[in-house]
């Protein structure tokens, strides 16, 4: 991971009751889920879009990991949790009985860059992203949002590094192609307004 994550932890109740856990992995597991839940939900949302519930994806991924928690090392759980969520997202997208869910996250919130990016632009990018093949989308999310290296992405998606590189490159080119008209119309608009003012 190239960039350290700063997560705002939210308390998770003690699994199995308020008493102290005899299994130390449960405590580590709880901490891991608390610390990474925000990013996990964002990753799931970016990959599944409106084609499945991101909450369901995270819940299922976490439950699967909990069932086999003894197998894993919970001291460095970030990669493990992300891999589980990405794989669960991809599995759900391939599911034949997948159903559409309502967009519970309309872009009404403020973006980190303030008012510079309009909600409409973000909406357009989201729509274009949703049209990409699922592997392209997953690779792009892990690369640009999670700042994972090609090697880490390859491990997460069970692919080779050249394959990942190709997926990311194609994803960017396809997004560029889909957003070309929108971006150009956005560029022309200020110019047109300037001419009208004159």
């Amino acid at each position: 991971m190239r960039v350290s994550e700063e997560e705002r932890p939210i308390t998770l109740g003690k699994i199995g009751g308020p008493e102290k856990h005899t299994d130390p992995t449960i405590e580590l597991f709880e901490k891991a889920v608390q610390n990474h839940s925000r990013r996990l939900l964002a990753i799931a949302r970016a990959i599944v879009g409106t084609r499945a519930s991101p909450e369901d994806v995270v819940q299922q991924a976490v439950t699967n990991l909990f069932q086999h928690r003894a197998r894993y090392d919970w001291r460095e759980p970030g990669g493990l949790l992300k891999r589980a969520v990405v794989n669960e997202s991809l599995r759900l997208l391939r599911h034949p009985r997948m159903s559409m869910v309502a967009d519970e996250h309309p872009d009404t919130t403020e973006t980190p860059v303030g008012g510079m990016i309009e909600n409409e632009t973000v909406q357009q990018v989201r729509k274009a992203l949703a049209k990409l093949p699922e592997h392209f989308r997953a690779a792009l999310v892990l690369c640009e949002y999670e700042n994972m290296s090609y090697q880490q992405i390859a491990e997460t998606l069970n692919a080779s590094v050249p394959q990942v590189k190709t997926w990311i490159h194609r994803a960017r080119r396809q997004l560029e192609g889909m957003l070309k008209d929108y971006v150009e119309s956005g560029r022309k608009e200020p110019a047109r307004q300037a001419v009208e003012k004159k």
Partner: peptide, 19 residues
């Protein structure tokens, strides 16, 4: 794209609900 990904981040209420 990065700003779009960040716009997808859940708020505290959503994270709490998920947890």
């Amino acid at each position: 794209r990065v700003s779009m990904f960040r716009a997808m981040e859940p708020n505290d209420g959503e994270v709490e609900s998920l947890l």
